[in-house]
């Protein structure tokens, strides 16, 4: 059991938790929050995978991917929340209308 393996499994668990809540929640604000957990879980998994060389050297490419990924995630979250606020202003609802689905 190495440090990187522990965090890789933790990342998978967090992404799984996020995915489950992303699928099962109906409140869009909660969906966005769950999406952030999926993202963080995947980042954790990806960066852990950069830290498993036998000689202890670190692969900088996943680090660079995740660093830009964190910034893209926050901008995507901001855009989603702005859209959600506008949607709420217009309709007064925080869920997508599900009457047609059922």
């Amino acid at each position: 059991m190495s440090t990187s393996l522990i965090y890789a499994l933790t990342g998978i668990a967090i992404a799984g938790l996020g995915l489950f809540h992303y699928l099962s929640q109906r409140n869009i604000l909660r969906k966005v929050l769950a999406g952030n957990f999926i993202g963080t879980g995947i980042f954790l998994f990806l960066v852990s995978s950069a830290d498993r060389q036998a000689d202890g050297s670190i692969d900088p490419v996943p680090h660079a991917l995740v660093l830009t990924g964190i910034v893209v995630a926050v901008s995507a979250t901001a855009l989603l929340l702005a859209l959600l606020c506008r949607y709420h202003d217009e309709t007064g609802s925080l869920t997508l209308d599900e009457e047609d689905d059922e």
């Binding site: 190495s2 990187s4 393996l5 890789a8 499994l9 998978i12 668990a13 992404a15 799984g16 995915l19 489950f20 699928l23 099962s24 998994f45 995978s49 950069a50 498993r52 060389q53 036998a54 000689d55 050297s57 670190i58 692969d59 900088p60 490419v61 996943p62």
Partner: peptide
């Protein structure tokens, strides 16, 4: 949702546990 989540995380965890010490990458 439960099914999909379990399948996806299970597959990922299995992949990790079966070959974690592999040292490839672009380092």
């Amino acid at each position: 949702a439960v099914l999909l989540t379990l399948v996806l995380t299970g597959l990922l965890a299995m992949a990790v546990l079966s070959g974690w010490s592999y040292s490839g990458g672009l380092a």
